[in-house]
Write a protein that binds this DNA or RNA. Structure first.
Lengths: 133, 133
DNA sequence: GGCGAGGTTTACGTTCACGTAAGCCCCGAC
DNA sequence: GTCGGGGCTTACGTGAACGTAAACCTCGCC
């Protein structure tokens, strides 16, 4: 299938990150670009993983938590006991995310309400100004 | 109404944080406990604010972003231009949260799928073991 | 009256997730 | 040939969000 490999710069442009960030993620074993004479080349899998990494970060997960989750998405040389552990922690993360989902719904409603209140207050001030004019 | 004031220790127990954390939030002007002869006493407002702070943190917001949001929830001496700015950034945060809400829904579905795949794989291994036995 | 528990300030230490700078290699252009 | 551009490693710096230690005060209690 001749995987389309891209350089670190193309990767950075595509995902809006710095080379330092990609090398850092690699050092933490979150991505595994192909190394050819000292240079890095990123394939489809690396792009998929980076996408998941950035998404995980937006949800407030640490890189270590994300690394554990990535093991689940990656069907490389699975060991049974290892996979069991991965799935167990994945269940925990899933529970976290479901809790966060509900909380987020509540927070969004409350924030909308507060914004509406604030705007109402601003309008009342405007009205006062017009009346006293 | 004789507001029920609680000590720093009670506050810590109620929200599972350390005294250091509460003092730190105070130094960053996120909460404003009453000071009586060198001691801190927390009221209803402080508890409400701390709840919002901890929730904001779970969503990945920085303390500074949270501080700005808190201004919206707090109707103390509002200035018009100030409130306008607060509401503007609140709209941004709201957009962030709505994006995150949608992303989270997708991520949850994908994670559930991956967990199911992992469990299916584990079962297939179990079956192989039985068959080869 | 001493002392332990709980509060306070000040200040340096720590972890995470990178930023930034120094120094080196290699390659294509001028 | 050299020179700039891009990539590499190594290593120290940084901001956020606290942890932790030192040194103090004060209150209730035996």
């Amino acid at each position: 299938m001749s995987e389309r490999l891209i350089t670190i710069r193309e990767m950075c442009d595509e995902f809006d990150v710095t080379p330092r960030t990609l090398r850092f993620y690699e050092s933490r074993e979150l991505i595994f670009p192909l190394r050819r004479d000292m240079n890095r080349f990123y394939g489809r899998s690396d792009r998929a993983r980076l996408k998941l990494i950035l998404r995980g970060k937006r949800f407030g997960f640490s890189l270590e938590e994300i690394r554990q989750l990535l093991e689940l998405y990656d069907p490389t040389e699975r060991n049974v006991t290892q996979t069991r552990a991965t799935i167990a922690t994945a269940h925990d993360r899933l529970a976290d995310m479901e809790r966060q989902y509900d909380e987020l719904a509540t927070a969004i409603l409350e924030l909308r309400h507060q914004i509406a209140e604030g705007e109402k207050w601003l309008n009342s001030i405007q009205t006062d100004a017009r009346q006293t004019a």
